[in-house]
């Protein structure tokens, strides 16, 4: 464990908690893409099946359980409890265009052709594009609530910190996982224009509104 991975995990946890609290406190999921949250729940489900097969550490197991629990709770709040506030008209990204290619790629490019490894690879590839429905929804509505931008900032920051973690681990431990690194680079690049808007607008107290 190194500081970059730890702050990355905490940034990820912060994003998940911010979103869950935003929906719970405001009793509304306006501006939130339910499709992205479904994809994240799928990412955690397919990645953390090793909860049943191997124990790494209390930290590892507890964080995985928290991530899975919060992501399912978020999906429940969006599609059940606060369904009336779900903005389905703007959450129209065709997720099958993500899941099918990612599913195919995870069969073609993986470290080992075993069920757990293919599911892990699927979750890594899927996570790199899972935010697209949310970014697409913001581009359609032309704006985002400030709390939603903080959620996206921490979510994007987490994988950027993981990239530094992988540089650190390559240099000090000789650890290198090409699949995770390539997917992580793609994932972080997708946030770049959002990061620019976040720094130039939200951090200056303005509302995030895209040129419609």
């Amino acid at each position: 464990m190194n500081i970059f991975r730890l702050t990355g995990d905490l940034s990820h946890l912060a994003a998940i908690i911010i979103l869950l609290l935003k929906i719970w406190k405001t009793r509304s999921c306006a501006g939130i893409s339910g499709k992205s949250q479904l994809l994240f729940a799928l990412v955690f489900t397919t990645r953390y099946l090793d909860l049943f097969t191997s124990f790494i550490s209390l930290y590892n197991t507890s964080m995985k359980l928290i991530y899975v629990a919060c992501s399912y709770a978020t999906v429940y709040l969006i599609y059940m409890k606060f369904k009336a506030t779900y903005d389905g008209n703007h959450d129209t990204f065709r997720v099958e265009f993500l899941v099918v290619p990612v599913g195919g790629l995870s069969f073609l490019v993986n470290h080992d052709f075993s069920p757990l490894e293919i599911l892990w690879t699927f979750s890594i590839y899927l996570e790199s594009v899972a935010i697209l429905p949310q970014l697409f929804m913001i581009s359609k509505t032309g704006e985002a609530e400030t709390i939603t931008t903080h959620y996206l900032f921490f979510l994007g920051l987490y994988r950027a910190l993981y990239l530094i973690n992988w540089i650190w681990r390559y240099y000090f431990e000789g650890f290198f996982d090409l699949i995770a690194v390539v997917a992580g680079v793609v994932q972080t690049i997708l946030y770049c224009d959002f990061f620019y808007l976040y720094v130039t607008k939200v951090l200056k107290g303005k509302k995030l509104s895209l040129p419609a």
């Binding site: 995990d9 990820h12 191997s54 790494i56 590892n60 964080m63 995985k64 080992d112 993981y162």
Partner: peptide, 10 residues
């Protein structure tokens, strides 16, 4: 083959 490193990352 690529020896499978234990997946210790989240």
């Amino acid at each position: 083959a690529f020896e499978l490193m234990e997946k210790d990352e989240l």
